[in-house]
Design a protein around this nucleic acid. Sequence first.
DNA 1: AGCTCATTGTTACCTATACTCACAATGAAC
DNA 2: GTTCATTGTGAGTATAGGTAACAATGAGCT
Lengths: 149, 149
Amino acid sequence: MTTPDPDGLLAEQLLRLTRRVHRIQKRHLERHELGVTPAQSRLLRTLAHYASPPRMADLAERLEVVPRAVTTLVDGLEASGKVRRVADPANRRVTRIELTDEGRTTLRELRGARRSAAEEILAPLTEKERQVLGVLLDTLIERDGGTPC
Amino acid sequence: MTTPDPDGLLAEQLLRLTRRVHRIQKRHLERHELGVTPAQSRLLRTLAHYASPPRMADLAERLEVVPRAVTTLVDGLEASGKVRRVADPANRRVTRIELTDEGRTTLRELRGARRSAAEEILAPLTEKERQVLGVLLDTLIERDGGTPC
DNA sequence: AGCTCATTGTTACCTATACTCACAATGAAC
DNA sequence: GTTCATTGTGAGTATAGGTAACAATGAGCT
């Protein structure tokens, strides 16, 4: 209440920073020539977290996007042979998404791109500062359940 | 070196958070029915920082986008009467962008939307945590001059 | 059985943001 | 005055996301 405009400013910084993250990420992905967009890369990584192939709807929830957005991403990844849609025998409405061997290979190669991109972005911070930032971001992200109005 | 994947994770958190910031910002802007998109809102605010009307190129640099992107934003804002393109008498290549009275009014009303959006985003953080976050983000943003390669 | 309702993914379309490339108009330098 | 740099913009593209409508399927109820 005492400070002039701290809140709006923070949001501004956040957005500004993210524009840079996007640019850097894209550049590193292109340099590694893996043929995936940033969003596809994210889906691949998310996919790796599941023990068994998730449904489209699971992915949508995890990625915090509408199911329709996942369709497009999977379309792209399936076209380049990195994932596979498999029918669920138990419930014929659901489609499960599997990583292919090629997808797994891409994922491994992706780690290099991610590491270098992250290093470039976070270069100005010390290890400890990164930890603090991580905690703060986590706090902001965690409470996603209840939007007040 | 000891932690598993701290860097990639931070970038991930950042991007995830920003998707939320975008959504929240968009929602609050729509609720206030000011007829501006988030990017237009940013341009309006940037505009207010200048003592005299800046050139398109100045805005592009300040917003960290290519000049062509500013053209589109100004198109939209001019169509809704919030800014005005004025020719520079001294150099007929340059176009200067002025806030109109309506633009200034919108800008004032925008502050409410911004405040409430920022409050929603930052709710889980204490005042002190916000300050720390601000400093960290600033550190990350500041060194934008020299990209290593 | 049948009727209704919810779930699941997708088709079709729209928006916002920002990019590259090419270009016309203008100014500056030689 | 010819050449070169600056300035903004037209044309086209890419990415990421959103809504609305819908077909196929499953589940519940009577």
